[in-house]
Simulated assay, not measured.
Amino acid sequence: MNISKTRLLFRSSVNWIQSLRFSSENEPTKMEKTINQVTLLGRVGADPQKRGSQDHPVVIFSLATHTNYKYESGDLMQRTDWHRVCVFKPSLRDTVYQYLTKGQRVYVTGKLTYGEIKDESGTTRTTTAIVADDVIFFQTNRS
């Protein structure tokens, strides 16, 4: 048996023993703290849409952010990334749906989520979205 397999078996054994220790009825389960936080500042790509069901409504909108960079030749370029933002909080959801418009600049904080969607043909696609905790509106100065 080589050293890497021995280390892997040792780590697996240690993890198994630790899981037994933390699953004891007398000891409280310790939860590790993690961070999943996203902050975006950009422009809304289209007017928000209502989705979901009566029991589980959601408002969705797209948000564009830009990255500027320069080639060695001196040419300036701008790359646009599109983000799907979902709003579930009732009061925030209603405000976003009523007042947010295409082209408006907004500041979004939330968390990154991943999922899967099956389309009509049965093909599974992965999705990425930001679940908004807060959306701050900026005044539009565009005519």
Rank of each mutant, 00 (worst) to 15 (best):
D133P: 01
T127C: 12
L92M: 15
T126V: 08
S62G: 15
S121A: 11
T39N: 04
N141V: 02
K50T: 02
L9D: 13
I17W: 06
V59P: 00
F138H: 12
T101D: 05
Q49N: 10
V131Y: 14
G45D: 06
T109F: 06
S53Y: 05
G103W: 14
P90R: 02
Y97N: 11
G52A: 07
V58L: 03
L92D: 00
L40H: 00
L112N: 13
R51F: 07
Q78F: 03
T127K: 01
S13K: 10
T67L: 03
P48T: 12
D119L: 08
L112C: 04
G52F: 12
V14Q: 05
T124C: 02
A132I: 01
R93C: 03
N141C: 02
V59N: 00
D119F: 05
T128R: 03
I136R: 13
V59G: 00
H83N: 05
T95D: 14
Y99C: 12
K70G: 01
I17S: 07
T126D: 09
T124I: 13
G103R: 13
E116F: 11
I117T: 14
Y107G: 03
V108W: 08
S73W: 02
L8A: 15
A64P: 04
A46S: 13
T101E: 08
I130S: 00
L92N: 01
